[in-house]
Simulated scan of single mutants.
Amino acid sequence: MAFWQWSGGGADAGHVVVCVHGLSRQGRDFDVLARTLAPHARIACPDVVGRGHSDWLADPQGYQLPVYAADMLALLAQLHAEFPIHTLDWVGTSMGGLIGLLLAGQPGLPLPAPVRRLVLNDVGPALEWDALVRIGQYLGAPLIFASEAQAADALWQISSSFGPHTREQWLALSRPMLRPAPQGGFRLHYDPAIAVPFRSIQPQDAADGEALLWQLYGQVSARTLLLRGAQSDLLSPATAERMTGCGPRAQLVQFEGVGHAPTLVDPAQVEVVRRFLLDADAP
């Protein structure tokens, strides 16, 4: 598993912030946030297996949350061996937030330090079925693009719910999503087989998973920040509201004009996360 590590001069290397991306994304999504946090802490942004520069699995059924969580435990053990971790924070967008729930919601796991602060970016224990169907319609499609610009335009068609971005911001988010295609042009970075287990999910599977995730959420002791795109189709207002009243009683911040999911590129979004993770008096 590849990962991107950021640390500025004078940063506290024992304070680690792990930033984990969504289902079809990769670790470079957090470049802007990582640059903001790096003067203060060590930032690790993994490419979850099957994505980015990480290896692809021989068995597509391995593309599931328990495997991802185990990989993160291995990453944290490696980081801890390099320099002892005394403070551990987690920022997870969509799938990355669910991985964070698996780790923060199971007190017996061999973490080098308990998760102190948890940022769940547009995700919760209950996921809206229609949004899962929408994602499944494009996930794993064998797309080839003639140029970076064409790829950026195509990615915007399926990701416009991310909210307003300048052309420069969107190109910066799109370039790490591309790899040279054998036949020329560019393809997407991830293994198309990540779609195999995702598309096999049935409504009853989702309901069973939801019950487990609520149980895990109830066991989270970390101070929790819940970010939501105000127009999100994955995280409903009802689920977000419930999350503020149970378990860690998440602090809820919503961003207008954004659906699923905030990219944490906009300065206002970055500042909310920065303040929550680094300000001692943050609520």
Rank of each mutant, 00 (worst) to 15 (best):
Q5D: 10
Q5F: 07
W6Y: 15
W6Q: 08
A13E: 12
V20F: 05
G27R: 03
F30N: 03
L33M: 06
R35V: 06
P39L: 06
P46T: 05
D47F: 01
D47C: 03
D47N: 05
R51Y: 07
W56K: 03
L57N: 01
A58V: 11
Y63E: 09
V67A: 09
A69N: 02
M72W: 01
E82D: 14
P84M: 07
D89G: 04
S94V: 05
I99W: 00
L102N: 09
L103V: 02
L111E: 04
P112G: 08
A113S: 07
R117K: 14
L118F: 13
P125R: 00
D130H: 11
D130M: 07
G136E: 03
Q137T: 15
Q137V: 08
Y138L: 11
A141M: 13
I144A: 15
Q150Y: 06
A152L: 00
A154D: 13
S159A: 15
R167Y: 09
Q169M: 13
L171N: 06
S174V: 07
S174N: 12
R175N: 04
P176N: 06
A181C: 15
A181Y: 13
Q204P: 08
A206H: 14
A207S: 11
D208G: 12
A211V: 13
L213R: 14
Q215G: 09
V220M: 09
S221K: 15
L225S: 12
G229H: 02
Q231F: 07
S232N: 04
L234A: 05
A238Y: 10
A240Q: 03
E241V: 11
M243P: 02
G245E: 11
C246T: 14
A250M: 08
Q254V: 02
Q254E: 12
F255L: 06
E256I: 00
G257R: 02
G259I: 01
G259H: 00
L264Y: 06
E271N: 10
E271V: 05
V273N: 01
A280C: 14
P283W: 10
